[in-house]
Design a protein around this nucleic acid. Sequence first.
DNA 1: GGCGTGACTTCATCAGATGAAATTCTCACT
DNA 2: AGTGAGAATTTCATCTGATGAAGTCACGCC
Lengths: 251, 251
Amino acid sequence: MKAYEMSCSPASVQAVATDPQRDRHAQVVHALGARIVGGSLAPGTSIPIEEELVGELGVGRSAVREGVKVLAGKGLLETRRSAGTIVRPRESWNLLDADVLSWRFEPEPRPGDIRVLADLRVALEPGAARVAAERADAVAVRRIDEALAALYATADDPEPFIEADLAFHKAVFAAADNDLLLYIYDMISIALRSVRQVHTRSVAHNKETLPGHERVALAIRRRHHRKAEEAMREVVEVARADAEQHVRLCC
Amino acid sequence: MKAYEMSCSPASVQAVATDPQRDRHAQVVHALGARIVGGSLAPGTSIPIEEELVGELGVGRSAVREGVKVLAGKGLLETRRSAGTIVRPRESWNLLDADVLSWRFEPEPRPGDIRVLADLRVALEPGAARVAAERADAVAVRRIDEALAALYATADDPEPFIEADLAFHKAVFAAADNDLLLYIYDMISIALRSVRQVHTRSVAHNKETLPGHERVALAIRRRHHRKAEEAMREVVEVARADAEQHVRLCC
DNA sequence: GGCGTGACTTCATCAGATGAAATTCTCACT
DNA sequence: AGTGAGAATTTCATCTGATGAAGTCACGCC
């Protein structure tokens, strides 16, 4: 079995992110990171000098410096001697860092971000399903089938269904036997989990998605990469249409 | 124009990574990060205690602590009071962090990683080209055409051709108007640049890839998402076949 | 007006002290 | 011998103060 597949439970994906309660420096990371990604600290501007942050955040210089270094490692900040610490341009940010994604999607994702996420799935998931059909071994196929069964089993419960759906798509990515691809999906799932909580889908709607998922699983089981891709495209195109409709209706 | 498109020159993509020369703490980040990703510090094991690292790396405790915190932020390390600092399991690593990717691919990528990269392109690029065809505006189309022209112009020079090729694919991703997708490609290009330097492709071979790229550009220009996807699939499938052959021949 | 120089700002680093949390060890008790 | 409470120890977490270095900026000289 591949060492990294199905490695992260939903909980552990969250645990990757820096826990704001744990340590003083983590408080600094979270406070500044959320402000930067949230937009209240604009790229190009300077953040307060170390001494001010010490007062403002109520921590020592060590904690401030360690926190700033972590954010610099995520591409959000750049420190320059004598010139202060400036917020780096958005293109430099590690957008697929778990923390950065959380700060972006968790405080209620913006309509534009919902579109980005839906397009991303359309761009990635059909191709991932295709490679999964090419590379899946017996264990991976079984995992997909189990995830499909869980999907059917939870179709009447909105909350567990979301997790089962995320687990199904994850199983598909895991079947592709590609750690980079699986990492990408783990990050997408962080964003998806936030978005899903917003538009609580109806039970009836959930059930309509079951045949599509079934076709994906079947195609991968038969190593039919063309059909796997097509079936997955249908699933994510439907999800994208739903998201667009939801944005139109409520925002 | 979209704020983030075509934002990074090849140089700035590299500059995202932590510069090992710049600061003491950056030395720590690089020294430990390269060892961890390179495999000489295995997941689950402890790294030397702070005091030992101070002696071993010849820096102060502050630098060690800041460096360790940066690596913890990238998911490579976890610090625990009284229990030392341990290397986190591979599934926790931020695999699409520029530094982590560099440490993985730069010291001469391993055959398995070449396969991972080739599969990843097959999974991602056709879908990206499809969304690009859906979303491209006039500016994006022009950028792709310019990149295509540069590809033709450099077909006789192996080195510039690699950069022109990377720029073309980046222009396609940029046309999709999706910052997460573009970020993914920026990271892929870091890995690709390392791999490309290994198998020096022949001039004749480069020229054979031109018609395929032309078809991609044409399809996007005409907003024909189906054809854009198909054309891009052909391009990356050829690249994958080349990579596989290269691995068989030389490794 | 151009340019060099020096004062100043701000981060970079080191060192020492204290604290807190978890592990490990000790040892009496059952 | 097994067990469990508690002490000793380890190791990271944080604060503070001092020093250094690398830019920045302003001022005055030419």
